[in-house]
Structure formats: structure tokens, C-alpha cells
């Protein structure tokens, strides 16, 4: 189990939801190999779809950049140990959505 504390980089989520998402991340890291990003992402998305309704999207990894449109109040980008987590929900109409550019820049990479 990773003992690291989650560090929120950016979010517009209510605090209760933030706590729940980070708890899910810890659960996922307990249940899966740290290298199995897809299963970790799947676990988190599935739980959030159940808890808050579809359709959530989940990106997990060490090195990625993204540009997304999300429903206001449903976006969080955080780190646990060396893993980055981007979690967001799609909006149903444009007035409720916002665009975010999220990246993890690692020029000097100390992988493996």
C-alpha cells in the first residue's frame, strides 16, 4: 500500500467529493499493481458512475498532457506518490462546461 498523501494540484469539486475521489484512488492502488494504470482508472470511473451518475472519465499515469471539457464542479487533478490522476465528468450542455488544459511535464525523467 502506498502511504503517500494525495496532493491536489487543481480542482473545482466540492470538498466531500474530493475526499471520496482520493479515497477511491487509495483503494485502487491497494487493489492493483501501480503499473496497471488502466485497471486503476477503470476502478475509479466505475465507482464514480455509481455514486454520482454517468459519465465520468479517468486518466491515470506518470506522464501525460490533456485538454478536456468538463461539467463545472466535477473536475480534479491530483497526485499520489508518483502517479497523477485526472478525473472529470462530461457536461450535458455547453453553458455548464469548462475547458481545462492539464499536464505533467517531466523533461528530466527518472523512470524505473
Amino acid at each position: 500500500m502506498l502511504e503517500g498523501k494525495a496532493v491536489v494540484r487543481e480542482t473545482d469539486m466540492p470538498e466531500g467529493m474530493q475526499s471520496y475521489v482520493m479515497e477511491l484512488a487509495h483503494q485502487a492502488l491497494d487493489a492493483h499493481e501501480v503499473s496497471d494504470c488502466q485497471s486503476i482508472a477503470h476502478f475509479i470511473k466505475q465507482k464514480l458512475d455509481e455514486a454520482y451518475g454517468p459519465a465520468w472519465n479517468s486518466v491515470v499515469g506518470k506522464d501525460f498532457g490533456s485538454c478536456i471539457t468538463h461539467l463545472c464542479g466535477s473536475f480534479i487533478f491530483f497526485r499520489v506518490e508518483m502517479m497523477e490522476f485526472l478525473i472529470f465528468k462530461d457536461g450535458k450542455n455547453f453553458t455548464e462546461s469548462r475547458e481545462e488544459a492539464i499536464g505533467v511535464l517531466q523533461k528530466a525523467r527518472n523512470c524505473d
Binding site: 491515470v60 506522464d63 501525460f64 478536456i68
Partner: peptide, 30 residues
């Protein structure tokens, strides 16, 4: 890079596109 691609797609095919670019990530989405 991701922002450039997403904006291209929003312009050509309507809003709501998502783009992830990187050398190390996994994700799950609808």
C-alpha cells in the same frame, strides 16, 4: 499538443472533445 488537437476537433466536429497525450498513462472513459 493535446490542447491544439482538441481545439481542432471542437472547431471541425462540434464541442465536447477530449484529448490525452503522453508516454505513460492509462484511462477509462465513456
Amino acid at each position: 499538443i493535446a490542447a491544439h488537437i482538441k481545439k481542432e476537433f471542437d472547431t471541425k466536429y462540434g464541442s465536447g472533445w477530449q484529448c490525452v497525450v503522453g508516454s505513460s498513462f492509462g484511462c477509462f472513459f465513456t
